[in-house]
Design a protein around this nucleic acid. Structure first.
Lengths: 131, 131, 131, 131
DNA sequence: GTGGTCTAGACCACT
DNA sequence: GTGGTCTAGACCACG
């Protein structure tokens, strides 16, 4: 399990961690009940302040992606428990629209974008299969 | 030409303006060479600090979406001049991936997401009568 | 609007702030759209680190109690938007049960407890009336 | 006598034990002078660190709920000896207030809350046949 | 060992 | 001016 954190990006460090954990879960690289590195471990591994890792973990727990057990560490959740928050859905719709429009301006065709989308879903589905 | 700016959203005001101008251009609501309201006009119209509007216009000009002619005002550009910046493309790919993963967690299906994508493209294509 | 924060209590400082803001909202001491003190203001007022206040405000925003507008400050939300989270409801049920049992052991009668409950609701209702 | 301990909950394990013992006593499932399992028995039964069970028992003894007789084991106390500690009472009042306010925000009505309260008291009274 | 809280102080983006 | 992020370093509760 390797993290690729880049402090030079505009996106906050703790969000980069959140994104990568969610991505690894979706792709099946991280399985349910699997243990994540401890806050201190990860923070020294990616050379970052422990508080920043902690913040990422807390947000991930709030989203239901991971659970932390006192004194034992943090683990990938077993259940997703999607609550279908309408505000979140609308937010995602807007985000998608913006990506599409910006892609349009960047000269990326509709077909190319759909290909990207398929690529992502193939990665998600390919490894999540319960073999 | 109506702007729908919401200071309550997390996205910065100046970005909201940028997004909406680009969206209106893509949809054909704003045509090439069309005049945009002046900074002062727009800032009083949407009750916002003029500096914020100015910042949005500057960024739009930098992106080549609009051009400012001193003493005459700002106008929609005629040509896009897409330079296919590989860094931008990669950034967009990452953004799309993130939206997909977050949607996945929000319980939105692949089909639903593709439908959203089609919806956006239909709006873009339907109104840009310059084919 | 006065805060009564006690570092000697076991309950974390940021939670004390959360509780008091919610209480003041429920009682109508804080009205919708009212501005809260800025992070720096409040932190110096109650002699606490700004980060701690910030954490409280962020959690309050996450709960939908307040909203923060970039560069302008934080305000009481207009809408509650209760989503009736079943996990939260169960948690509250458990908390109530525990308070009751502990009260039972502390020699507090059922009638006394109901009286307390009524007292709280009277404060909530009395001032929330839309006069 | 079955314990239902969940390490995933935020509440510390030793407190969960305390709560459950007190609840079982209040409901009459555990009678005065009844013997509790030994620290080792209980810790292996619920798969937990013995120190955690020990800590729970110590706190229960401090509260006067159980008594330990060296060489014979731990037993439920006969008498409660409620000392009406004003600090504890105030603490419970605050806890109740907070549960009510949080319930208010969670969309739980006053009637519902009172119903929950009655439910708990019915369980407590129904089984304590020592009247 | 684990994570959670808090402080002090810095820098940045937005308005 | 506003809040948001990050660091460094401390202390505590839990298991």
């Amino acid at each position: 399990m390797y993290f690729n954190i880049d402090p030079k990006k505009n996106i906050p460090l703790y969000e980069q961690i959140i994104h990568q954990v969610k991505e690894m879960c979706a792709k099946g690289i991280l399985k349910p009940n699997e243990k994540l590195p401890s806050v201190r471990e990860l923070s020294s591994q990616i050379v970052i302040n422990p508080n920043t890792v902690s913040k990422a973990y807390q947000e991930l727990e709030r989203q239901g992606v991971i659970i932390t057990i006192r004194g034992r560490g943090t683990f990938i959740s077993e259940d997703f428990d999607q609550t279908y928050d309408p505000r979140l859905v609308e937010k995602l719709r807007q985000s998608l629209k913006q990506v599409i429009i910006d892609s349009h301006y960047a000269g990326i065709s509709r077909e190319e974008l759909i290909q990207w989308l398929e690529d992502v879903y193939n990665e998600i589905r390919g490894d999540t299969s319960e073999s």
